[in-house]
Amino acid sequence: MKQNFTVRQGALDGVEAFLSVAQHRNFRRAATELGVTPSAISQAVRALEARVGAALFIRTTRSVGLTEAGEIFLARARPAFEELVAASGAARELGQRPAGLLRLTVPRSVVPILLEPLIASFCQAYPEIEVELAASEELVDLAAGGFDAGIRMGQFISPDMVAVRLTKPFPLVIVGSPAYLASRGRPARPDELREHACLRLRRSNGALAPWSLNDKGHSIEIAVAGPFIANDFPTMLGAAVEGLGLAQVPSPLAADAIRAGRLVAVLEKFVPMAPGVFLYYPSHRQIMPKLRAFIDHVKGRSRAAS
């Protein structure tokens, strides 16, 4: 199929000229209102009539009136055009100041340890922005899902995204409950994990994630086994607290349980470092003010914390 290299004239071409002439019943006054020549107004109206397939005005040397088709067209085109103008104004307003709905896709694990304090301070700073969090482990398409941005650990973010750091790098700790370790013993080396009940994570693509470890600077992966599989870190952490087995989770998520003595870290010398958590969004030339305000707020909080 042959492609056109120009955009065809749209149904709205000439509508503003028609509405102005219909209001003033005069081509010259319509031209003055729109800041164009009377000839330009006349050409626009004639082109519109040709596309509609009916005469819209009755023209004499002394007056301009509407035909029956013109009356019908005016009755339906005027409110539609006014709504279009209002929509343009509303969109323009969102493009000029931080306001509107900011939609973020986030994993469940970052909500309590990172986003709750951050979102609270952001909502207080920008009361005209509504924040919607969609908590999911799925790596969703931001554009297809209607999201302004996402939050994920750095290793899961596509390289074509712009990423803003939210946390420093942190270890992926291995933890177990005191009761579990008392009954099964404490592993001393990575290869001993094969003798333990290890809780596993199912990724969004359906695959079971191996455990990652670091042995004297060399990254290794171990296919562990155990009685429980979850699709997010908080659920897996809760199972570890209940004594179902060992779990490998981000250290900020396990910090409170470790401090409270409900979990104990093991194999500390072998745990790997994760790059941290990042806010990410598509690379656009123009970022909406609501997202720009959130990015600036994130950076400001990060500087204050460092």
Rank of each mutant, 00 (worst) to 15 (best):
M1I: 14
N4Y: 05
F5A: 05
T6Y: 10
A11F: 09
L12K: 14
V15A: 07
E16N: 03
S20K: 13
H24Q: 15
F27E: 13
R29A: 09
A31F: 13
V36N: 09
P38S: 13
S42F: 14
Q43E: 09
V45G: 10
V45M: 14
E49I: 12
E49H: 14
A55M: 11
T60R: 13
T61A: 11
G65A: 14
I72W: 08
L74Q: 15
L74E: 08
A75W: 06
A77E: 09
R78P: 13
A80P: 05
E82V: 07
V85K: 14
A86M: 00
A91G: 01
A91T: 10
E93N: 01
L94T: 07
Q96V: 05
R97G: 01
G100H: 06
G100S: 04
L101C: 06
L101W: 06
T105P: 01
T105C: 02
R108A: 02
R108D: 00
S109G: 10
V111R: 11
P112K: 13
I113M: 08
L114Q: 09
E116T: 11
E116Q: 09
P117I: 08
L118F: 06
L118S: 03
S121W: 11
A125F: 08
A125W: 08
Y126Q: 10
Y126H: 12
P127F: 00
E130V: 10
A134F: 14
A135L: 07
A135W: 13
V140S: 08
D141P: 06
A144S: 12
G145D: 04
D148N: 09
G150F: 00
G150P: 01
R152Q: 04
F156I: 00
P159R: 02
P159I: 02
D160L: 02
A163C: 01
A163M: 04
R165Q: 05
P169K: 11
P169I: 09
F170G: 02
P171Y: 08
I174C: 05
V175A: 12
G176P: 11
L181E: 01
R186I: 05
P187N: 09
P190V: 01
R202W: 10
S204Q: 14
N205K: 09
N205V: 14
G206I: 15
A207S: 15
A207R: 15
L208K: 15
A209V: 14
N214R: 15
E221I: 12
I222M: 12
A223W: 15
P227G: 02
F228T: 02
P234E: 03
G238W: 03
A239S: 08
A247D: 05
Q248K: 14
Q248D: 01
Q248C: 00
V249T: 10
P250V: 01
P250R: 05
S251W: 14
L253G: 00
A254N: 07
A255K: 15
D256P: 02
A257K: 15
R259T: 11
R262H: 12
L263K: 13
A265I: 04
P272Y: 07
A274Y: 11
G276C: 04
G276D: 00
Y281I: 06
Y281F: 04
R285F: 03
Q286K: 13
P289S: 05
K290W: 04
K290Q: 07
L291G: 02
R292M: 02
F294V: 01
I295P: 03
K299V: 07
K299R: 15
S302R: 15
A304G: 07
A305M: 12
A305I: 13
S306R: 15
